[in-house]
Each structure stands twice: as C-alpha cells, then as structure tokens.
Amino acid sequence: MLSFKRNTFTFLKILLIIGFGYFFWLMLTITLEYIPLDSNVSFLMIKQTEVIERPEYLTFFYTHVYTSIFVLLSGFLAVIRKDFGLKNLHRNMGKVYIFLILLFAAPSGMYMGFFANGGFSSKVSFIILGVLWWFSTYKAYQLARQKRFKEHKQWMWRSFALTLSAITLRMWKVIIVYLFHPNPMDVYQIIAWLGWIPNLLLIEYLITKKHL
C-alpha cells in the first residue's frame, strides 16, 4: 500500500512537471512576440492610447513581460526543491524569484493595473493582485531570513499561486470565450478576478489541511 502511494505521488509529480512545461512553453511563445521591441504587436495593439500618451508605459510593460517569464521558471524550480533532491537549486532559484518579483515584476504589474482593460473592476483586481504578489513574496523572504522555514514555505506557495495567475488567467479566458462568447471587455472583468482568487483559495485550503 505504501509503495502504491509512493508510486502514485511520483506519477502526479511527473504529470505536474509535464503540465507546467507545456504551459511555460505557451507563455514563452507569448513573451517572444515582443522580441524585437515592437509596440504594434499582440496585446500592445489594443493599448495604443497608453503607448502614445504615456512614454513610460512601454518601459513598465517590457519590464513586466521579460521578467515574469523568469519568475515563472525560477518559482517552479524553487517550490519543487526537496521533492527532487534539489536543495541548492531551490535556494538559488528562490533568490532569483524573490529578487525579480520585488524589484521588477510586481511593481511593473501594479503600474500596468492602473491601465487594465475592463474598467474600474479590472483595475482594482490587478492592483490588488500586484500588491498581494509583492507582499507574499516579501513575507517569504523575511521568514527565510529569520529561519522560520515552515512559514517561509507556506508564503512561497501563496506567492507562487499568484505567479501562476499569468497562466490561469489565460486558461479561464479560453474557457469563458468558448462557452459563453461574451463581450471582450466583460471577459477582462471576469478573468481579472478568476485568474488569481481560485489559486489563492486552493493554496489556503492545502495549507489548512497541512498538505503544504
């Protein structure tokens, strides 16, 4: 029975890695659309007002896009750490993850939240997301410095749940558009909240049940 549980757990971890690899590749293809720099491609095509009227917008946008892909990868490598005997990798990737979020990805994301599509509701959601993302990451960093590693692990999972909103937001968008064909602006209002709240609720449930 113990062997069966161990094999099942190993199988689930392998599926997790495969699943993450697939979605990471999708996010990487999105990121590569913005290389070389071009303000008339993909998402930026519907943000021309900001591009033209706010010279700093592109700086924040590219900062967010280019750092977030590394945040996603380093975060994943950090959280799977001991399960695969990768303690040193966990420490190094954790430093990269925390550094990029606190200094670049979260601040630029909060700035972009003020100009999110979908009106006031979407703006509020993305700003809250950015604040929680920064705070949970800083809290994880602070607890690691204090050697309170159990709490550090829990806050890192909270942070990574918010990091994964980059993926889950797009998953919800595909599902909602496919099933309901709503107005594009309505989609933004919905996925702005769906992208991160279920992630956080799931992590809180797992922490409460002592699975993390």
Rank of each mutant, 00 (worst) to 15 (best):
V124R: 03
L179P: 01
T67Q: 06
F23M: 15
F43G: 11
I176T: 09
V71T: 07
E53C: 09
L100K: 03
S121Y: 15
G109T: 03
H152A: 11
F4M: 02
D186C: 01
S74M: 07
L28T: 12
Y178F: 14
Q154M: 06
I101H: 02
Y141C: 04
F11Q: 07
S42M: 15
I127V: 15
L100N: 03
L200A: 15
I69P: 00
G19L: 03
A144R: 10
S108T: 07
G195E: 09
N183Y: 10
G94A: 11
A106H: 05
L202C: 02
L37R: 06
E151H: 11
V187H: 06
F61D: 04
F70W: 09
F61I: 10
W155F: 10
V65Y: 00
N40M: 10
V124P: 04
L28P: 00
G94R: 02
M156R: 06
P55M: 11
E56C: 01
G94F: 03
L201Y: 12
L73D: 06
W157E: 03
F60S: 09
Q189N: 04
F70H: 07
I190G: 00
S159G: 15
F76L: 12
F135G: 05
F104A: 02
L16E: 05
S121W: 14
T137C: 05
G130N: 02
F84I: 00
I46H: 14
I203A: 12
I128K: 02
T49I: 09
W196A: 00
A144T: 10
G19W: 01
T63G: 11
V41A: 01
T63E: 14
K123D: 00
M45D: 13
L194Y: 11
I175R: 09
E53W: 13
S136L: 03
V51R: 12
S108N: 03
S159E: 07
L28M: 12
Q142S: 15
V71A: 01
A78W: 02
K209H: 13
I207G: 09
T163V: 15
G85H: 07
L2Q: 11
I30E: 13
V71M: 02
G85L: 01
F20H: 05
F4H: 10
L32M: 12
L162V: 14
F23H: 08
Q142H: 13
F180E: 04
F114K: 13
L37M: 10
V124S: 09
L179W: 08
K150A: 08
P36K: 07
F126Q: 05
E50L: 07
D83H: 14
Q146A: 14
H211V: 05
R6C: 08
A78S: 15
S39F: 07
F180M: 02
Y34V: 05
H152N: 11
L164R: 05
D38R: 08
F180H: 03
A105P: 01
G195W: 01
Q48C: 08
N92W: 15
G109L: 00
G113W: 14
L2E: 12
S136D: 07
E33S: 01
A106E: 09
K87A: 14
F115I: 00
M156D: 09
S74L: 06
T59M: 10
K95P: 03
W157D: 01
K209E: 14
S159V: 05
P184N: 06
E151V: 04
L200F: 12
Y62C: 06
S165M: 07
M93I: 02
L129A: 01
